[in-house]
Design a protein around this nucleic acid. Structure first.
Lengths: 215, 215
DNA sequence: TCGGATAAACTACACCGGGTAGTTTCTAAG
DNA sequence: CTTAGAAACTACCCGGTGTAGTTTATCCGA
């Protein structure tokens, strides 16, 4: 019987499998990826893969959730680094936008799986999709909103709806690049990332710039 | 020999095939879609499909380009309707945003194929991808920029870079919904579309509102 | 205007090669 | 005795081709 959910078997093998699954699913997408390829990438027999995960779909969804949580954590660290102790608001907002774009879209790593999920959205069970959103994009948005709230209390931003501000910041500084690079599938020049982030922050500050930021 | 490029065979059959291909590719995605399913959907034998299109990839790319051009034309009409003779700027910008979102994301139709392309971007020949972008998103952006330019000359908008304004308008009024619905894969309540468009336009006018729009 | 000949296009169906998910069997090692 | 590895096996589906027969459009002669 496959130990689909709980931790079973050698943990390091399981880790190797999930890591390999992220790589292969991210590179090939769900449909194209084969269990043989994942087993090979993990340096493990296919039997072992099926000992840890019931089937292809279970493996994919499991890895997707894990990846989503990891990325959220990484972004959370970036926020702590750039938005906790703000001195130069505009510069810090630009730096965070750039680093986030790099973290999500830089070749292969975290964003690739997100692309696979977006491609498969119609075939993902609603509750799993919900969980993925909650652990990923929604969580990041909440974190960002909390930071904006704090900045607003310091008078650096003028926001009545921090959630809305977080969304608009993300749209203006990130989604343009994400769309242009097709969520990391195509490379984007780093100067382009910086340029878009800068322009986006300026626009954002026009909307939500606080008293201290208004000319 | 397959008559891949030129018009050959019965035109109505060819039309039925491209139409069916749009439906099936849009619903299943490139990899999952089978040529059998497309032939069945078209009410045509599989051999006929291969008489009109050399192979699956050719059919997909051909249909993608056609679809892209059609959608661009549809959006162009919406711009003509809402942005040619503007009287109430804010209302017209909202109306256009809502109608565009409906046109692109409404269940199944035009946006579905775009999703398939975004999923396959890594496997699409660069020159074809370029052509798709040029006939689709880039063309629409240019059209919108031209309209903004005209509005700026009337003093309704304050834009120095109309292209940038067009992008920001699109981000603020459209991409939020597109991302939330995964480009039409999941349904979105119409009130939500209207709400996001309205909020987006207000933000946009904070950035680029012209003299006549400033309080 | 009509009726059949002709050629192109289409259909139905079997078929091939290749690839995949998932299972099983057997073997080795800790 | 438990766990994993290797590899073969099953059952299936897909892209694409070959073929033989059928439909459809076009044209030509009376």
């Amino acid at each position: 019987m496959a130990t689909t959910g709980g931790a079973a078997g050698r943990p390091e093998k399981r880790k190797a499998i999930t890591q390999a699954a992220m790589v292969v699913f991210g590179r090939e997408g769900y449909v194209r990826a084969s269990m043989d390829a994942i087993a090979a990438e993990a340096g493990v027999s296919k039997r072992t893969v099926y000992n840890h995960f019931a089937d292809k779909e279970t493996l994919f969804l499991s890895v997707a959730l894990q990846n989503s949580a990891e990325l959220t954590e990484k972004i959370r660290e970036l926020m702590a680094k750039y938005l906790d102790r703000v001195v130069d608001l505009r510069q810090d907002l630009v730096d965070f936008a750039v680093e986030r774009a790099r973290a999500v879209l830089s070749a292969g790593e975290h964003g690739a799986l997100g692309r696979a999920i977006r491609a498969e959205v119609a075939n993902i069970p609603p509750d799993v999709l919900e969980a993925w959103l909650e652990a990923g994009p929604i969580a990041s948005m909440r974190d960002l909103a909390a930071h904006f709230e704090a900045l607003a209390e310091r008078g650096l931003l003028a926001v009545e709806d921090a959630g809305l501000a977080a969304e608009q910041y993300t749209l203006l500084t990130f989604h343009g690049i994400a769309e242009r690079s097709f969520w990391g599938a195509l490379p984007v020049a780093d100067e382009e990332v910086v340029r878009i982030a800068t322009v986006g922050v300026d626009a954002f500050l026009r909307i939500h710039g606080g008293p201290a930021a208004r000319g």
